[in-house]
Design a protein around this nucleic acid. Sequence first.
RNA 1: GCCCGCAUAGUCUAGUGGCCUAGGACGUCACCCUUUCAAGGUGAAGAUCGCGGGUUCGAAUCCCGCUGCGGGUACCA
Length: 504
Amino acid sequence: MTATNDGAIRTRFAPSPTGDLHVGTAHTALFNWLFTRHHRGTVVLRIEDTDRKRLVERSLGGIPEALAWLGIDWDEGPEVGGPYGPYFQSERKEIYLEYAERLIAGGHAYYCFCSPERLARVREERANLPTKYDRHCRDLSPAAIAAARAAGITPTVRFKMPLEGQVTFTDAIRGEITFDVRNLEDAILIKSDGYALYHFANVIDDKLMAISHILRGEDWIPSAPLHLLLYRAFGWEMPLIAHTQLLLGPDRKKLSKRHGATSIQEFRDNGILPEALVNYLAIIGWSWDDKTEIFSRDELIAKFDLDRVKPSSAIFDHQKLEWMNGHYINHLLTLDGLTARALPFLAGAGLFPRGAPAPGTPEYDYLTSVLALEKERIKRLTEIPEAVAYFFSDEIAYTQDVLVSKKQKLTPEIALAALPRARETLAAGDVADEADTEARLTALAGELGLKRGQLFMLIRAALTGRTATPGLFALMRVLGQERCLARLAAAESWLREHRQAAAD
RNA sequence: GCCCGCAUAGUCUAGUGGCCUAGGACGUCACCCUUUCAAGGUGAAGAUCGCGGGUUCGAAUCCCGCUGCGGGUACCA
């Protein structure tokens, strides 16, 4: 990339607060952020809230919060301020008006008094034509303008699109793209409510905020020529521009709510780690080589650049994200890190009615040893409360099928004979010693004429009420001697009580 | 309709004229490990590189045409 004028790279992400932060928007924001951090430039966050009708109040705070959660920070914008503010477009209304006047004075824009109804009609009449608006007000006489104003009509301001010629710009990801202006509209710049439209506010702000590189979604390509022409009308140079790929749903359509979870907030609530999501988003549309795909944040910053960004759209693969999330949980997060992430989910499930355990306490140590056992089989943080439940509650809900595994060829008789012997065997030692416990239980299995697996499964079920758990001896070590003995007894009496029912 | 973009296995990708009998990853299947479930290891299936023409001794890679898919076409962003 070549830098502009002063050599300083300045980029922006410009979400509009119309809802939660969409994962596609986050993808573009991430590319902006990685590109800028790589080049030690300045990141600007600008809130494009010119559409007052679609404004969703909670997203004003929610979007910056979601970005921060992802670890995408900004040097200028809401919360941090900066020399080019305000960073909310709704507070820049007057600026746009002023620049619109300039355009009109220079003959590059005009007032349009057409009513929405007329516009709708004309659009229908010209349905098959490249431009929908018939430029009715483009050359209104001063008298006609005065008359319309006197009639109380508040006009919009439209751009006076050149009538012929071609516009070409170079996209840093896609190369040259050319449009014929005959296919371009006299776009509205200022709405009749006085607010600027996206295209206009965007161009003015990028210029005023000294943005050097524009990175945005592919869906903006069709409006790029308008933006370029706007820059030209003001006599400004256009920033370098690049259009990133779109994120698609399984049906190859632009990713949206109907494809499932699409907001960053939902990913967080669904137990996805921000570092996993960032890593996954980074490798969709960008690659470093033919095999690496796990990158730390710092590696991403060090390696990311536009020359390895692909132009083609990509289907968002929840399955691969989930795999990567599991990989982070199991292999990349420290135990303390995982514990910290798990705590809110555990608390949410009501596991700590008296408050979450603090590091250094026995409760905290117990929790980390539990998580150490479960982390390799967990893909999302949301799975944790259910996975660790039996470590925190002694009320095990037994069932006949689980306790007396048919698959292991167990019967209530065998179980009732084995359970008390297992208890005796355990009582004679200490489950803190895994190898010793295993040796003694293996010997017991022999005495009882059972296979190791049969006895182990019976004990597993008695201790946890489940057939799928971490390794039996590690599990016993964490559970502790006392709990193990108590649960063996509990399973035995449960079985005795329910034996009759099973026999029927 | 018109304009624009994209095109390597189900999905994400590597590849810029010979290193490609097309590499990696997710997913799928099998085997190994094993007390269960995972994790891990090994391996397999899966792509006539969208199609058709060229250029070249040689093309996934260059050229032309076609097709498919997507995006845009608002006083939304």
